[in-house]
Amino acid sequence: MADDAACWKADGNMTAIAEKAPEKAAVFRAEGVTRVYRTGAVEVRALRGVDLALYEHEMVVLLGASGSGKSTLLNILGGLDLPTDGKVFFRERELTKASDAQLTAFRRDHVGFVFQFYNLVPSLTARENVALVTEIARNPMRPEEALERAGLPDRMDHFPAELSGGEQQRVAIARAIAKRPDVLLCDEPTGALDSKTGIRVLEALYEVNRDLGTATVLITHNAEIQRIGHRVVVLADGRVTRDEENPSRVLPSEVSW
């Protein structure tokens, strides 16, 4: 894997861009990203020319109805999927030109994922699920520290089946932040949870963003959650329809649904 990473770096440096310097350092930059799925004769245009930037230390809430293309966009940013057209840059490296091995190295070193259904390994305990990642990360925190940050210090030796949904999601967050990622990508992290539990999960994400400065993208279809973000991007029908700063940011404990 070290080779992959080195290869990725070399490749990335060659595709540096220096168009207009942003006022803040951009972590992600998407330019005209289009994604078309073809299943048989049916053609689904999930994304239709999305331009978007994500900056350091920022928490962006990506809002949209189901089918608006927000998960597709997140998968492309996270190197899980490739756009049909358009370019995606992570810092100054072009993701859309990376090989499969380079994308793997990218995910391993830079991205933390949190999904709606937690995606924990059922045969590993909470601590082990986190250790799974710390074992392959370059500069990880201890699994115990990550679990504490995610607000789950006392159930480390439980298996996923022994944890509630909210607890499982906090294990997933601990697993995502343990590698000290540059960016945290969260796809409907509260989607399967009741509001009380959901808020506790949001608190965990909020604190990680605040304390570690990890740039965070939070996908939701729940409009209430947009109030905790620095910025809100609304997606509809595969296009960005709104992209604005949130001047009146609140704590997760102040939102309710």
Binding site: L80, F106, D109, V133, I136
Partner: peptide, 16 residues
């Protein structure tokens, strides 16, 4: 497959 795909997402290589 779900679990193994999750590992790939977490940055595990195909070999791992």
């Amino acid at each position: 497959s779900y679990e193994l795909a999750s590992l790939r997402v977490l940055g595990f290589s195909r070999g791992e």
